[in-house]
Design a protein around this nucleic acid. Structure first.
Lengths: 243, 243
DNA sequence: TTGCTCCTCACGTCACGTGAGGTGGC
DNA sequence: TTGCTCCTCACGTCACGTGAGGTGGC
């Protein structure tokens, strides 16, 4: 009944797409008329609509062909999984859309909300410019990669600065940058940091140690790279928290 | 601060993706350290997150590069358009998901709902097997390609069969299949069909003539191909409806 | 007759993925 | 030292798109 062009228009695909599906064995080659043209039935159109639904859902063509050879029950189950996958992809795209709207609304080249204030506090407490730069980079990165978790983490960090004991540990950490890695001050600093962390957080619930976020670990690595002393403090703290 | 691998993990892309973005000029090449490794700042991560938002929204990489060179206002407007496009794509995917769920639930290899009954009626009215097959194909195709409009069109078709005059026209159409294309019966039939159509529908609101659906036209073409007499009827009816 | 559609190769494209073969960092 | 990461080509892949060069249908 239908030529390849008519079928293509009916289903909303290109002629080439249909020919590719024939070549890959997704859609059986139909009868040819006396001049060699493919002639399609409505059943072919129904098949093509099904194939398109799967292809649009992101299923690779090779897997769609496998579906055709499986049993009806298998196919049913596979379709369910594909639909679930698609649901996840859709919500991913909705998050992408949200980010686009945010980018369209404001200029994201500035510091994330609250970070400016956080940095101002650090400056007043006497932290070094190096530490401030590092913190600016850190929070920019956390906000860019984990927009939902970032505000909570920043608030937590702000609270820990309220405690003079904690604050002193951070100040000492900052100052340790230029120390020799073997300096005994470093061992003392690491011990205090471990104790303070254990008092502040439940064990097994340390911020930045949860599986959902490896960003702090990355930051830590990047931080470590810049100073042998900082590298040693990190090693000692990790050892202390594990034992 | 960050190596390419760390940046990749932070943003959730592959190392290769980042290198491709450098090669295509989407993301500027960062400084290298003394051993030739690329070293990224948090700002680079923010840039990369923006690029990914656009890429995930389906914007071609070449257009993303153009965005970077445009003014801020242009970029803002372009982002809005991208977000709108994405919204459309998302609702398309939601329809795809709905189709997948339907395929997972029931076996779609059978006739669409109501078509079986329609065909039974046609048989009782004395239509030929050829006509029944054609109608089965036609409705299967319409339901596959226009699932939301199809039930209404089928109901409309059912109603027109209630009218003995209309029904006779269809029966004569069916029977004309084997007539010579020059047979005067055909001219009479075409005149009656035009009159009935004009009485039944508002001019400019003929079903299947609206822009939203070229399916009936395709079907008609396919139908025409099988009989010179039917081809002639179609030509005469179109001429009659236009004048 | 003229424009439109169909046919089959063959090559192009887009956004990466995958080694190959070699070097640097903890 | 050993496994992991980085580097630069070069080629592969997936799902089509795009001619090339030719023929059929209204």
């Amino acid at each position: 009944m239908l030529t390849i062009g008519q079928l293509a228009r009916a289903v909303g695909v290109s002629v080439k797409t249909i020919r590719v599906y024939h070549a890959k064995g997704l859609l059986p080659e139909p009868e040819r008329d006396f001049s060699g043209y493919r002639r399609y039935t409505a059943q072919d159109a129904v098949e093509l609509v099904k194939i398109r639904a799967l292809a649009e859902a992101g299923v690779p063509l090779a897997r769609i062909r496998e579906f055709r050879s499986g049993s009806d029950a298998e196919l049913r189950a596979a379709l369910g999984r594909v639909a679930d996958d698609l649901a996840r992809r859709i919500s991913g795209l909705q998050r992408t859309q949200e980010r686009l709207r945010q980018l369209a609304a404001g200029d994201a080249d500035q510091l994330p909300p609250g970070v400016r204030e956080h940095l101002d506090r650090l400056r007043r407490f006497g932290f070094s410019d190096r530490w401030l730069t590092l913190q600016a980079d850190l929070w920019t990165l956390v906000f860019a990669t984990h927009p939902s978790a970032a505000p909570g983490l920043l608030r937590d960090q702000g609270e820990s600065l309220d405690d003079p004991l904690q604050r002193q540990i951070f100040l000492d950490y900052d100052a340790a940058y230029e120390l020799d890695a073997e300096d005994p001050i470093i061992d003392d600093l690491a011990r205090r940091a471990v104790r303070a962390t254990q008092e502040r957080y439940d064990p097994g619930n340390l911020p930045g140690q949860d599986a959902s976020s490896d960003i702090p670990a990355l930051i830590q690595q990047a931080v470590n790279a810049s100073s042998p002393a900082w590298r040693r403090i990190d090693t000692l703290i990790r050892r202390g928290l594990r034992s």
